[in-house]
Simulated assay, not measured.
Amino acid sequence: MLRFDPFGNVEAMTRSLLSDEGSRRSPRFMPMDLYKVDDHYVVDADLPGIDPGSIEISVDNGTLSISAQRTARSEDGVHWLASERFSGQYRRELALGEGVDRDNITALYDNGVLSLIIPLAEKAKPRRIEISHATKPSAQAIES
């Protein structure tokens, strides 16, 4: 089972939303979708303009962490007319339940979207339990 705690880091998120650091714009959040398909979960996180080499994904003590960096453009002589794109560090954490296979998580970054495939652990997959039928003792077995 995959758990998502939207209030896990409220203080840090509130601080980042309310802070104003002059002209430096830092990322506010990493939008994502989380859904289950058959025997795995899928996380699709939006990271447009991120260098794939800056993306780090780790699992530690049941927490899946995603971090990435977008560097700001710093060209001499540029006169900015608008600067609305965030730069800086993006980070997102998800609590993994006991029912996922942490060793076989895979990741793909394509067109600004990071997709993680998180398979269910074998013990967590639904399975059918066969029912044994007891045989009634036959008349011959009773006479013997």
Rank of each mutant, 00 (worst) to 15 (best):
D20C: 04
E21R: 15
S23I: 05
S26F: 14
R28E: 14
M32L: 10
M32D: 04
L34R: 01
L34N: 02
K36M: 08
D39T: 03
D39Y: 02
H40K: 08
V42C: 04
D44K: 10
G49V: 05
I50C: 00
S54E: 03
E56V: 13
E56Y: 08
G62S: 02
T63F: 10
T63G: 01
I66N: 01
S67R: 12
R70I: 07
R70C: 08
A72L: 11
R73N: 15
R73S: 15
S74M: 13
S74N: 13
D76K: 12
G77H: 05
G77D: 02
H79P: 00
H79A: 12
W80K: 15
L81P: 05
L81S: 14
S83V: 11
E84R: 15
S87H: 09
G88Q: 11
Y90S: 12
R91Y: 10
R91C: 04
R92V: 09
R92C: 02
G97M: 03
V100W: 01
D103V: 07
D103A: 15
N104V: 00
N104E: 06
I105H: 00
A107S: 15
N111P: 03
L116I: 02
P119F: 08
A121Y: 08
E122I: 05
I129P: 00
I131W: 08
S132W: 07
S132L: 12
H133E: 15
H133T: 14
S138V: 11
S138N: 09
A139P: 10
